[in-house]
Design a protein around this nucleic acid. Structure first.
Lengths: 327, 327
DNA sequence: CTGTTAGCGCTTTCAC
DNA sequence: GTGAAAGCGCTAACAG
């Protein structure tokens, strides 16, 4: 301990925390001692003493989905300005080794948890939510986290985003448009946006389950594109599934966008890869991350408003996988 | 505290740690009390008391490079079986918000650090290496971490991998093969493998700097492919750069693989996307992660062997971006 | 403004 | 085998 500066522990503590009520002289002495000793405060001891860790758990369900990583950027940046730091945990990886992601976070004394995307750890989250604040981002699930527990939700406007994607196809002149539906509530909402847009255009809707991975999107699209009458456009649940659809088209010797147009969702860096150049729905990933972090920190700070659902707008980014049909 | 079982703190501590020297009766009592109370040991207090955290910092320099994520799988799985858990930290994200990744880890009292891929935090790592063991995976840098500090290195055989990629092109009948060189020592080694293979075939080598991102690969390839005489094959530093090259070819209306063959490196899931279907060098990502974790835990355990350099073999995976020239 | 005094919840000698 | 006691390095009232 830097009693080297000739002061007490508490003074050091105050200086470290940037307390305004410390005389410049003393502060200088402490700062100098810190520098000389190369003193590094021990986070662990700080946490134990203050019984708050200044960390928030970020529960990603798959580090391989680029959307999560984008969202993480917003979360990290915001958390940082608010004095917190994220503890990442990839449930896919951890579950593979038999661990329990949420408990892991709790034992590490995180002050709160941000759930990113549809998760399978619902039951554990219920228990966690009784102990620390939780906010859901990019998902509505688990919807109910226990009696009296209010959980904020930050999402994009899935209905509108999917509707925009669908309308884009309609406006290009497509009439046989199939939707590859994804899992969970978000999947349902996107499907609904699709159906709304189809109905508004007086077209018949057709949705098939397409999962949320490249693999599952490939399989679904392959089936759809091999059938008759073949759709001329596919609106996918996310970019990964859309890329699977791209591959399916390729394998069936169908050219994109000439013979089949394809739209993704999330506008991840995959969509931006020039060689793929996927038309996709931008869903305000960064803003979602920012708001999720902000909401959580508010609750950690003791505010306990009723459940808030914040929606950021979605917008379509047109690239090279969509065009008029049969062009 | 579960003195509820009618025993002392220390006994609980022993039971928790699975110490063999505890009578079954007492153990039962403690276990029961734990269950009844839903007792969760406080990790933070454990760490403070035991002055070892059981965590190891994993310093990723970019969560967006899929290769890192793959490697992480091996690290996490191995760490877990050895009783440690990883603390991920993405220096790109953190630096963006002005933090210092390595110090962050140190303050969290990690027991050791695994560096994944070429990093820019060399100076900080030197300081860290004086305090906790460090192992480098997928990189040789920073090469010198201070006097008397031994650091293990786990990598793939970059020279051989790049040579295999190049030989593949040679055997297909290509003679104008350009290499997009990446950064750091790894970039140098891959360039050397390329040159070796070219020399062995009696061909003239040509390397140009191509970075390690899609963007930079695109720019480099675009320049190369627009020049004359145009190469008929490109061996890229990694998959990301290769995909950039794919896009460049596309933009120049050159067909792949007919007019230009392209080989990547790392065999990430990007290469496996059917619509890209990139020929790539598999570099034993998982094995690298496993060994890195193992080496680190050994050192944490107190072993201090001389610097070890472990190399896992590389092998080529041929997909659809390579063929005979002009076919 | 500054120093004192208790803990935070566990691990660890070290006796019994 | 088991318990008592002394910390781990800090924070947080509280009293000067």
């Amino acid at each position: 301990m830097a009693a080297r500066a000739g002061v007490s522990k508490s003074l050091v503590s105050l200086v470290l925390r940037g307390d305004p009520g410390v005389s410049p002289a003393r502060r200088g002495a402490v700062d100098r001692a810190i520098a000389e000793l190369g003193y590094q405060p021990n986070r662990v001891a700080q946490v134990l003493g203050a019984r708050r860790s200044g960390t928030v758990g970020v529960l990603l369900n798959d580090l391989r989905n680029p959307w999560f990583v984008d969202l993480l950027d917003g979360v990290t940046a915001t958390l940082d300005t608010l004095g917190f730091s994220p503890v990442l945990i990839d449930s896919a990886t951890l579950r593979r080794v038999g661990g329990s992601p949420v408990e892991q976070l709790l034992k590490q004394q995180v002050d709160g948890i941000i759930v990113v995307g549809t998760t399978e750890d619902g039951e554990q989250l219920r228990r966690a939510a009784a102990v620390v604040p939780v906010v859901l981002s990019g998902t509505y699930e688990p919807a109910d986290l226990g009696p009296g527990v209010e959980v904020d939700v930050v999402v994009n406007d899935d209905v509108d985003g999917a509707a925009a994607a669908t309308r884009h196809c309609v406006e290009l002149g497509h009439s046989r448009i199939t939707h590859l539906q994804g899992p969970g509530r978000v999947g349902d909402l996107r499907a609904q946006g699709y159906r709304d847009a189809m109905a508004a255009a007086g077209l018949a809707a057709l949705t098939v389950p397409g999962g949320m991975s490249e693999e599952s999107g490939y399989a679904a699209a392959r089936r759809v594109l091999a059938g008759a009458p073949r759709p001329t456009a596919i609106v996918a649940y996310n970019d990964l599934a859309a890329i699977g659809a791209l591959s399916a088209a390729h394998d069936l010797a169908l050219t994109v966008p000439e013979q089949v147009s394809i739209v993704g969702y999330d506008n991840t860096y995959l969509a931006k890869i020039r060689h793929l150049s996927l038309t996709s729905v931008e869903n305000g990933t960064l803003a979602i991350g920012v708001h999720a972090a902000r909401f959580l920190v508010e609750r950690i700070g003791g505010k306990t408003p009723a459940r808030r659902v914040h929606q950021v707008p979605a917008s379509l980014v047109v690239r090279r996988t969509t065009s008029r049909p049969g062009v």
